[in-house]
């Protein structure tokens, strides 16, 4: 369920193309033609994902009430990007960062992306959308929607994400980044559940375990293992 894609060292020049197109990794034995084909395929598939929200972009959905998201720009003062980046040129080359105070690699998008896909290289206080438009950190969902259009739609209308405060009046909802760390894979957190359901005092012995396996293949497996048990003894 939880898959972690290992990031691989960058294996080719970036060629000044927009970072969001990603970079098909060159494989040994690939012909130039195959590489070009693959690149075009990824461009096309990305466009297919991106086009609908782009077209619908600024006209907010009909029937949709206004909403506010919990602000995040206030947190920027704790993250003085400029302190370092004013001395560094943007390097569009995906790589493992050494001694970095922030994440050392970008695992988002199957590790095919790099910082500048979402962060505006010219202004560290802002993000940027696919269109190149600068986006405030409070509006980070406008960046996310460029690729995750279906999820964005659910979020916009309340089927995804979380509303906070009141159920009535103006919607106050959490931004995508309140739950998802965009630098990482979307891993589901596995943790220990809160305590077992209680049982009326004195009746603990009355609890009976879950049903035995009943899926077709599980039953077959169990029958086989029982059979082999019998033959072994």
């Amino acid at each position: 369920m939880t898959t972690v894609t290992e990031s691989k060292p960058f294996d080719g020049d970036y060629g000044g193309k927009p970072a969001w197109r990603g970079r098909p990794r060159r494989r040994q034995g690939d012909s130039e033609e195959e590489r070009v084909n693959r690149r075009w395929r990824s461009v096309l598939s990305c466009l297919l994902l991106v086009l609908p929200p782009l077209l619908a972009a600024e006209s907010e959905a009909p029937g949709q009430k206004d909403f506010t998201v919990a602000p995040r720009t206030t947190e920027l003062e704790h993250v003085p990007c400029k302190d370092c980046h004013q001395y560094m040129d943007p390097n569009p080359e995906p790589r493992q960062l050494v001694d970095s105070p922030h994440v050392a690699e970008v695992r988002h998008g199957k590790a095919d992306m790099w910082c500048t896909a979402c962060h505006a290289p010219e202004n560290h206080q802002q993000l940027r959308a696919l269109s190149g438009l600068a986006v405030d950190f409070d509006d980070s969902h406008r960046v996310c929607r460029d690729c995750h259009s279906a999820t964005y739609q659910d979020w916009l209308y309340g089927a995804h994400g979380k509303r906070v405060g009141s159920w009535q009046g103006e919607r106050e909802i959490l931004n995508c980044t309140a739950c998802h760390d965009p630098h990482l894979n979307l891993n589901v957190l596995q943790r220990r559940p809160v305590a077992l359901p209680g049982v009326r005092a004195g009746l603990e012995r009355q609890v009976h375990g879950p049903a035995p396996p009943r899926r077709l293949w599980q039953r077959k497996q169990q029958a086989e293992s029982e059979e082999s048990d019998v033959t072994e003894h």
Binding site: V199, R200, A201, G202, L203, Q206
Partner: peptide
């Protein structure tokens, strides 16, 4: 009724 064997179930 805790003195009985009955439960929510």
């Amino acid at each position: 009724l805790i003195i009985t064997g009955m439960s929510d179930q």
